[in-house]
Amino acid sequence: MAEATRLGEGLRAYRLIAGMWIRSTMTYRTSFALTVVGNLLITGMDFAAILLMFSQVDSLGGWTLPEVALLYGLSATAFGFADLLLGSMDVLGGRIRDGSFDTLLVRPAPVLAQVGADQFALRRLGRITQGVLVLGYALVAVDVEWTAAKVLLVPVMVVCGAVIFGSLFVAGAAFQFVAQDAAEVQNAFTYGGGTLLQYPPTVFGTDLVRGVTYVLPLAFVNWVPAAYVLGRPYPLDLPEWAAFAPPLVAGGFCVLAGLAWRAGLRAYRSTGS
């Protein structure tokens, strides 16, 4: 019960603060429009790279363009939502350094919600837009016998993927309590993970695939469930049901990120730096 009220309080605070940032952005309308387009183009360059590659070959790691586009669309859309909602958490380190983080701690709202909503930027809709466009193309172009399970799996992947990436953002922010200048480490996991998942697992070395399946199970964002949808062999011979594990994995990620955040905040409040 108490947890539920806290969650409600958090969401409310998030909405209030995000609203303020949107209003702030809207004071510079032209610049805002520019940045949405810019964000779309910059994030879309990853797909342009894939298109460039496919202008020279018909398949990559044995996967065709529509199949790779499906991976890309799922990864980019899921990442896009996480990025929109929590993507500015890397400013936390700066806030700790300049002391403005303290002003968040004297407000009657959960700190995580305040940090999550910090610098909320609608321009990040650009990333989601290009992800959805590619995903739409892929869903039309792939050669799949659609079943109820496969259809259901698509939105499940996007939502769970967003939760998984969101957890990475939170965990990365928690790390900044310890190392304020190391915001870029979290980029290696968030942006790096997002990029990794845009390519088929068959491209990568077995050790790397094992790592992102068993150690940091990013494979459940799209690799495993998309393999099920496409009727392709799973990476690492995982069992059939593994395609339906994303909600479980996402839940696990959430809990761990929450614990990391608490530990980080506790460390900050006992050291003040």
Binding site: D102, L105, V106, R269, S270, G272
Partner: peptide, 9 residues
């Protein structure tokens, strides 16, 4: 002050 306001433990 930070202890009085709950920022620091």
């Amino acid at each position: 002050i930070k202890m009085l306001t709950g920022i620091l433990t």
